[in-house]
């Protein structure tokens, strides 16, 4: 039983989340009610979308530390446009956030592809640059709820078949990225490049270009999340989502995505994000200080990476024929 669980990370996570829910429900039965679970899901939607982008990047043996800063910059840009020109249709703003995010991601990708600068350095640098740019644009001022148009704020809240659009958007993204990862040559190239970059070249895959594509994808998802974030919380300022890049990476690591690349799945990233989301939403209701969330996710990251490392450990080579037969 344990063996099957260790082998199938997604199943292990489902069990862990279920156990978590049971524990919470023992102390606070209302938590398990469908309406509340839907609320938890909605609350985790942005993290899920971001984790999907980070997953693509980590799959290719890279990392994107600039996602939260990218989110904040794109969120600020669309909020500012909305406050100055409320007439611009919201879908156009969503598209703009998406494109701007992809552009910011492509800067990361280009530096890594064309100049071969280590991803951690590039995204550490662009993280501070993107944050600083928000300040340059806004002068440090906040864009508050009353400066945003109603349509701008209403979109993620509007309900469709009982669920908010925000939730539906994350479902759409999960489906979309799932198709990209499993059914397109690009998605399979993400797997191949991270799993064995050497061999990937032999099969005709351009490693640098594939990484570039991964960063464009993570950037686009960060941009989309930027709009969702500012419209949902109805505020935009320099420091929104500060430090959120770590939550995103945490969701991926918990979801079984190997930092060494090549291993990971869409369900893993989603479940990793949900795991964090459940914890975050459960803490207040079971009377644990919400301040404990950070320490818990830190502990979970360490446990997750230790579990992943065990599962990934490769068998040594077998020379004795006798041993092979076992």
């Amino acid at each position: 039983m344990m063996k099957i669980l260790m082998k199938n990370r997604e199943l292990l996570l489902v069990v862990a989340i279920a156990a978590l829910l049971v524990l919470i429900t023992l102390r606070f039965p209302a938590f398990i009610e469908p309406a509340n679970l839907a609320r938890v899901y909605n609350d985790t939607s942005i993290l899920i979308i971001l984790a999907l982008g980070q997953m693509a990047v980590i799959m290719t043996r890279c990392i994107d530390l600039s996602m939260a800063a990218n989110l904040a910059l794109c969120g600020m840009v669309v909020a500012m446009i909305n406050s100055v020109a409320p007439g611009v249709p919201v879908p156009a703003l969503v598209l703009l956030a998406l494109l701007l995010g992809a552009f910011l991601g492509s800067i990361n990708g280009l530096l890594i592809w064309k100049l071969e600068i280590p991803p951690i350095v590039v995204t550490l640098g662009t993280l501070t640059i993107y944050r600083g740019t928000i300040f340059l644009l806004s002068g440090g001022a906040w864009i508050n709820a009353h400066q945003m148009s109603d349509a701008f704020k209403a979109l993620p809240r509007a309900t469709l078949a009982g669920l908010p659009v925000l939730s539906w958007l994350s479902v759409l993204m999960i489906a979309l990225i799932y198709i990209v990862m499993t059914r397109t040559p690009l998605g399979r190239a993400f797997h191949a490049v991270g799993g064995n970059p050497h061999a990937a070249v032999y099969t005709g895959i351009d490693v640098g270009r594939t990484r570039f594509a991964a960063y464009c994808l993570s950037g686009a998802l960060a941009g989309l999340s930027g709009y969702l974030w500012v419209s949902r919380y109805a505020v935009a300022y320099v420091d929104i989502a500060n430090g959120f890049e770590l939550d995103i990476i945490a969701a991926c690591v918990i979801g079984g995505i190997s930092i060494a690349g090549g291993i990971g799945s869409v369900p893993g990233a989603v479940l990793g994000a949900l795991f964090l989301g459940v914890i975050k939403n459960a803490l207040p209701v079971i009377n644990i200080s919400p301040f404990a969330q950070m320490a818990i996710s830190g502990t979970v990251i360490i446990i997750a990476v230790a579990v992943n490392a065990r599962a990934e450990k490769r068998k040594g080579r077998v020379i004795l024929k006798k041993a092979e037969a076992h």
């Binding site: 191949a192 799993g195 064995n196 061999a199 090549g262």
Partner: peptide, 8 residues
């Protein structure tokens, strides 16, 4: 040492 993809 066959160069293929272990995870695929």
């Amino acid at each position: 040492e066959t160069v293929l993809f272990d995870e695929l």
